[in-house]
Design a protein around this nucleic acid. Structure first.
Lengths: 247, 247
DNA sequence: CCAAAAGTGTTGAAGTTACACCCATGC
DNA sequence: GCATGGGTGTAACTTCAACACTTTTGG
């Protein structure tokens, strides 16, 4: 800080990242596999690790994410701080901490972050330096290491809330996408069915999508129109449109 | 933690509380005055301090708040973590830290919380153990210690967002209140004018207020009807009404 | 009787919901 | 020609925004 910069690990603070991806069908979360030290099993955790002393929190989250998955330079939104004194007390977790941490008994508070990325932009490579990071469909995720399940739930809740008040999630899709894909994305995140016609009307009325000439090819049904997201119009809309809240 | 409980201060983590109060006219925030070590001036800060090792974050926030202001057992909502490495680097702040902290150079990450309380429930007593905690009207608050201004702004933003999606803020008012007072409260928090008739209609339609027989007395104008908040109906409404978001 | 705030309705516009059929393509 | 998902319109209803005058009280 201030005068003496100090590039050492801070043994008390970590950052954990909830990275959402969408494969045009279901919502996924990027998890890393950890070998349990005791058994043969692996168990799953969010990508996360201790921060450095001289590192801003969001920088740390990005660095840790990069080290564990290879993802780079992602906009991360903070979920909040998680710091129950017993959040590291499950036997599996204790074993893992003992194996890798200098001070395995330290109380660690973690700051949760989340982000949305296109699953095509990140294809996990089992053989790479990114140790086994994999996309797991969100309905298949059960218990996670530490309190990571709670962090994931918090992130999903924030994502839902945000999605209902402003259009986001375009980075979960490829550059060119169809309205049906966007529709499925919304349904996957919110976990509800949305009327097709009303959804389309609402989306198009916002005037942040640009319809391309291009259409789907090789599909065994009427080919779908491609759209792309117009970032310029989106930002104009953000300024004017979304400040005016309910009242 | 886990096996060896450890009731010592955690030198790296603090909790800061943004307590909103309403005097039936303007929105206030509870701040504590700190003597600058160097000059004669005082400067203002949020009530906050380091947490204990064995203490959950929200427990810590409540304890710290109690120690500094006397307020007890408040429901605190988390704003988030604030951890810029240079958040403690202003000269005034450094001087204060050197005077009171064991390790004044440590990097401290703080968790911000906010809450709403009735200003009548808490009348600061200059002579009490609560060192000079006072209500300051929110428009009069300028710079604060550390990054407390940023925490305050974050809390206010969350409060606004929450207020626009669900009715809250009844704990900012006395038990019996008039619709005009509630109206002023909303305007004070949101910082905008709201149409009187539309506001009343909307509030009453939610059916969470109970009109009392009682009316104002001794006012030099038509006396206003008193209402009280019906918590039961509010919770019923929360279950059914506010899950259904925009889509 | 004056000042001050309380209280009250209507209208037009916008937004929301619900709902069913035809279309273009590959096989 | 059939299976598949793409694409379209309308009507009833609810919500929202804008707007001005009368009432009750104290002094």
């Amino acid at each position: 800080m201030h005068d003496k910069m100090n590039h050492e690990l801070n043994p008390r603070i970590s950052a954990d990242c909830v990275i959402f991806g969408f494969d045009l069908n279901t919502l996924n979360v990027l998890l890393i596999e950890r070998e349990t030290v005791v058994g043969l099993d692996t168990y799953k955790a969010l990508p996360g690790d201790l921060i450095f002393e001289d590192e801003p929190l969001d920088t740390a989250a990005n660095r840790v994410l990069n080290e564990l998955t290879g993802l780079e330079d992602i906009y991360l939104e903070q979920v909040g701080a998680f710091g129950d004194p017993d959040r590291l007390s499950k036997p599996q977790d204790r074993a893992w901490l003992k194996a890798v941490r200098q001070d395995p008994d330290a109380r660690v508070i973690t700051i949760g972050y989340y982000s949305l990325v296109g699953m095509n932009n990140y294809v996990p490579q089992p053989a790479s330096f990114a140790r086994a990071a994999t996309w797991i469909p969100i309905e298949e995720i059960g218990e996670l290491a530490f309190d990571h399940r709670e962090i994931l739930d918090g992130a999903l809740k924030k994502l839902k809330e945000k999605l209902t008040v402003q259009p986001i999630g375009f980075n979960l899709l490829p550059e060119k996408f169809t309205l049906s894909q966007l529709h499925r994305l919304y349904e996957a995140i919110l976990g509800v069915e949305l009327d097709k016609r009303n959804f389309r009307r609402k989306m198009l009325k916002m005037d942040i999508l640009e319809s391309l000439e291009e259409r789907q090819e090789g599909v065994p049904h009427k080919p779908s129109q491609f759209y792309k997201f117009n970032e310029q119009k989106y930002h104009d809309l953000l300024k004017t449109g979304f400040d005016n809240f309910g009242f």
